[in-house]
């Protein structure tokens, strides 16, 4: 056994100083190991036997290294190439509704001009222009009562707002994917839940296979294109205003502010963990919160003791931010979502009273379904995750 070479999959290897990020890009699974682990992987990739690899690792570490146990761990992670050739491999699912395959499909050189130095200068200028316009021109500021449902017919408002939201979301998520393509990485789209919100998401986990500084572009690409769209709409409104432009501007500002809620694992959360060099802050935050309330379960104290020190350092304050986030989300729902839903249901009740023979009846039901649908999906996903946890 120890004289046989170990066949590894095509693994990614990123040197982060004291640690090395290793991953299987096809499956989308990544791990962090000490630098000596990187020496072991590199030796195995070069076809060295376990024996020879152990000798090189000992030379590097200055003490004997248990290579066979590490190879066994790699096997458990699925990092060894043990398939029949020709087997198609699928990435591991990370969301309840998700594309089953990685999405490539665009040559990197076509996407690259959108994320070069000139492009980022443009994104920055658009963000500054939008901010200045919102601060300096009071008439452009979003007004929840006026812009979102400026039309007197709330049903028409629903029909206007939700499709616009979907189009803007598609552009935002598509831009994340384009930025990943510029780095020659694939991504995949999915739908998931964040606390009480339904979210459209782009899985950018393959960013773990590139150096840290190159991860920021794809993470900020969504907000970058939001800034451009907002700048165009605000500029347009200065010249010629109308209801649709008001609604688009309102939704864009609303969505960009929403991204600031890092405790929901938004784009800016990913930027934060990249900046702090965290590896698994989300899990460590949960463990630290449980520890604070004396609710650690079996094995979790050991898991916490083995956690990355940077994760623990950040988790000590991030856990309270997350807890405060529960109240922020409750306030957000009470301030934004509830008033809209209440007035919608009142309007629906009045319209439905006309009876199923009237077209108003069906129109009102369709509008209600469109606005209530996402909230019902959130409830469904919450119930589903509760059931799978209990199983």
């Amino acid at each position: 056994m120890t004289t046989q070479p170990v066949r590894l999959r095509r693994l990614s290897l990123v040197d982060e100083g004291e640690e090395v990020l290793v991953g299987d890009p096809e499956a989308g699974t990544f791990i962090s190991i000490p630098a000596v682990g990187g020496v072991v992987i590199a030796a195995l990739m070069n076809g060295a036997t376990v024996e020879e690899t152990a000798r090189r690792a000992e030379e590097y570490a200055g003490e004997p290294v248990d290579v066979p146990a590490f190879v066994e761990t790699l096997r458990e992670l699925g990092f060894l190439d043990e398939d029949d050739p020709g087997d198609e491999r699928m990435p591991v699912a990370t969301a309840p509704i998700q594309g089953r395959r990685w999405l490539s499909g665009l040559r990197p050189e076509l996407a690259r001009p959108l994320f070069g130095r000139v492009a980022w200068f443009g994104y920055g200028a658009a963000a500054l222009f939008s901010l200045a316009a919102l601060v300096l021109v009071p008439a452009l500021r979003p007004d929840p009562a006026g812009d979102a449902f400026a039309v007197s017919d709330i049903g028409l408002g629903a029909l206007l707002v939700y499709p616009i939201t979907l189009v803007l979301a598609a552009v935002h998520e598509g831009w994340h994917w384009l930025a990943a393509r510029a780095l020659d990485l694939p991504a995949r789209f999915g739908i998931d839940r964040r606390m009480a919100f339904l979210v459209f998401e782009t899985d950018l986990s393959l960013l773990w296979s590139v150096p840290r500084k190159r991860r920021y572009g794809p993470l900020l690409a969504g907000l970058a294109i939001d800034s451009v769209m907002l700048a165009v709409v605000l500029g347009w409104r200065m010249v010629a205003d109308n209801t649709v432009l008001g609604a688009v501007a309102y939704i864009l500002v609303f969505q960009m502010v929403w991204q600031c809620m890092v405790f929901l694992r938004t784009d800016l959360y990913a930027v934060l963990i990249t900046w702090l060099r965290c590896k698994d802050l989300w899990r460590v935050k949960t463990l630290l919160l449980r520890r604070a309330f004396g609710r650690l379960r079996e094995g979790e104290a050991a898991e916490l003791a083995a956690a990355d020190p940077r994760d623990v350092r950040a988790g000590l304050w991030f856990r309270w931010l997350w807890l405060a986030g529960l109240f922020v989300v409750a306030a957000w729902l009470a301030f934004f979502a509830l008033p809209v839903l209440v007035s919608l249901l009142r309007w629906t009740a009045a319209e439905v009273a006309a009876g199923p023979a009237a077209w108003r009846f069906w129109y009102a039901l369709a509008c209600t379904a469109l606005l209530l649908g996402p909230w019902l999906a959130v409830a469904g996903l919450a119930v589903r995750s509760r059931l799978t946890r209990e199983r």
């Binding site: 990020l21 991953g23 989308g28 990544f30 791990i31 962090s32 190991i33 000490p34 000596v36 682990g37 072991v40 570490a61 004997p64 248990d66 146990a69 590490f70 761990t73 992670l77 990370t94 707002v161 939700y162 939201t165 803007l168 979301a169 935002h172 994340h176 998931d192 964040r194 009480a196 919100f197 339904l198 979210v199 459209f200 998401e201 782009t202 899985d203 950018l204 986990s205 773990w208 991860r215 794809p218 993470l219 690409a221 969504g222 939704i251 969505q255 929403w258 929901l264 694992r265 938004t266 784009d267 990913a270 963990i273 590896k279 989300w282 899990r283 990355d308 934004f336 996402p374 959130v378």
Partner: peptide, 19 residues
Amino acid sequence: MKIEVRKVEPIKATTNGTV
């Protein structure tokens, strides 16, 4: 010495779908 392995979390970019 034993080589300790730590998992890293998935990286997701999101848009709010409930407005």
